[in-house]
């Protein structure tokens, strides 16, 4: 099969800890199989600057916590056929959302001003503007497949991705749960 007719595959990482991507790497030798079956067009694991057009499958790790996250998601959704919320942060907002009950201002104050820093100040330049509330991916764009788990196991990811590549609809909740 030439690179042209292989499914185009991408992964992205928003407000997450990279744990879901680490679990992805845990698929070990199956990664070689996958590399043979798809063309990885964008990912923190490969060197591509701009998210390309006509992507077949995109895995999104992490919750939506900043304006920049929203912009990325809108662009990716427009360019992706099957968008997957990958892991609890993407599906529920999980640990990043633990700041929500307190409000952004109180959290920023606690972290940057009340923490005995040498020069207490809230960073405002060159960093993305944070949202008042961290939300799951599906509150911003339509999601096609949800994979709960913190992180989902390598076996779960493998099973879901191979079913999708085979054109089937995976029964994800038979494989994983929240907090798995």
């Amino acid at each position: 099969m030439s690179a042209q007719d292989k499914p185009r595959f991408a992964t992205l990482w928003l407000d997450g800890c990279s744990g879901c991507h680490m679990s992805f790497l845990d698929m070990d030798e199956w990664l070689l199989d996958l590399a043979g079956q798809v063309e990885v067009v964008y990912s923190p694991l490969v060197d591509a600057k701009e998210f390309p057009d006509n992507v077949d499958i995109t895995l999104i790790e992490g919750a939506v916590a900043s304006r920049e996250d929203i912009e990325k998601l809108l662009k990716i959704r427009a360019r992706t056929k099957t968008l997957i919320a990958f892991g609890d942060c993407a599906v529920t907002a999980n640990v990043p959302s633990m700041r929500n009950p307190f409000g952004l201002e109180a959290v920023m104050k606690q972290v940057y001003l009340d923490s005995n820093a040498i020069q207490p100040q809230v960073p405002t330049v060159t960093v993305p503007e944070l949202l008042d509330r961290v939300v799951p991916v599906h509150r911003i764009v339509k999601v096609d497949v949800y994979i709960p788990g913190c992180p989902p196991s390598a076996a779960t990811i493998k099973s879901v991705v191979s079913e999708l590549l085979a054109g089937k609809k995976p029964d994800v909740m038979a494989l994983t749960r929240f907090g798995a």
């Binding site: 919320a85 929500n100 939300v135 799951p136 599906h138 509150r139 709960p148 909740m173 929240f178």
Partner: peptide, 15 residues
């Protein structure tokens, strides 16, 4: 939740 196949929550979290 797992048994009932709840793979995400459609309502906004109230937090």
């Amino acid at each position: 939740a797992q048994k009932l196949g709840m793979d995400h929550v459609r309502y906004p979290y109230l937090n």
